[in-house]
Amino acid sequence: MTIATPAHPAQTTAESAPAARETPRRQRRPHSTFRRIGRATVPYWLIAPFFVIFTAFGLFPMLYTAWISLTDRDMLRPDAAKFIGLGNYTDLFSDEFFWNAVGNTFLLMAMSSVPQLAFALILAHILNTRLRARTLFRMGVLLPNITSIVAVTIVFSQIFGRQFGLISWLLDTVGLDPINWQAGEWTSKTAIASMVIWRWTGYNALIYLGAMQAIPKEHFEAAAMDGASTWRQLWHITLPALRPTIAFTALISVIGQIQLFTEPLLFDNSPGSVSGGNSHQFQTLALLLYEESFRLHNFGYGSAIAWVMFLVTMALAAGAYFVTRGTSRLTGGSR
């Protein structure tokens, strides 16, 4: 299970692409073990809490969810649950609401991840110059990330309000018609993607900034002497060096988007609705899972959705791992 490696940037970058970031000196002796200490059982006691908690509240629920997904189980009548094999899965694949949610999830993923990472790169590039009030700017761009998604969505829903929203008012002042953001297939997704982009751009920019500062300065000095503009330097020096970091942030962003839940839940202006709009135009997989399980009480069907989401996540992570490994081998080889 080495697909786990890209999950940790320090590992990805320090172990598979050393030049991409700073590696503190002490780490040059990373795996030396302090061999003489440790009585036989003490280490196991030290790591036991993690394994106990994970088994009880991570692994067991996953496996139990797999079992529930093979049954027809109503939340309100657990005793009447009956085994139906893969029935929920075959239903799922012929359910237009499921495919709608798949489409929405992936569209939102593309609409939020791509601009978010691109903006973050540009922002990091600007932050990586000699600046006054450097810390203030960094804190400024990180501010969105520390606010809760609930808060963000409440505020953005008001800004995107149809008749009395700030944006509709701005459009009105320049003579355009107000937009009913929530109703449209694309406008609603744009609004939700903008919340995600707003919240995560600065965070990713700081990760990139950290990676950029690990690039040896000489590379830039040489390029500057050759007369390369700063944006050319970004393209020819920074980007190639940042490839593993970019792959990592892309993976994290994609995994986050598969589980996109709070934004579409709270953006829905129909009171009490959890269906992601009148046409389910922004119902994501996580929202469908919630609606099926906790509104319609179909625990079996909801569990099948959970497992499909899990498998998709795993597939994407594996894909990202192979892409990253490929890239880091390339960058490693070219040096």
Partner: peptide
């Protein structure tokens, strides 16, 4: 709620 969604689609999306 499902039927109300339909009415709202007519109102808001000209379905």
């Amino acid at each position: 709620q499902a039927m109300e969604h339909g009415i709202q689609r007519i109102e808001q999306e000209n379905q």
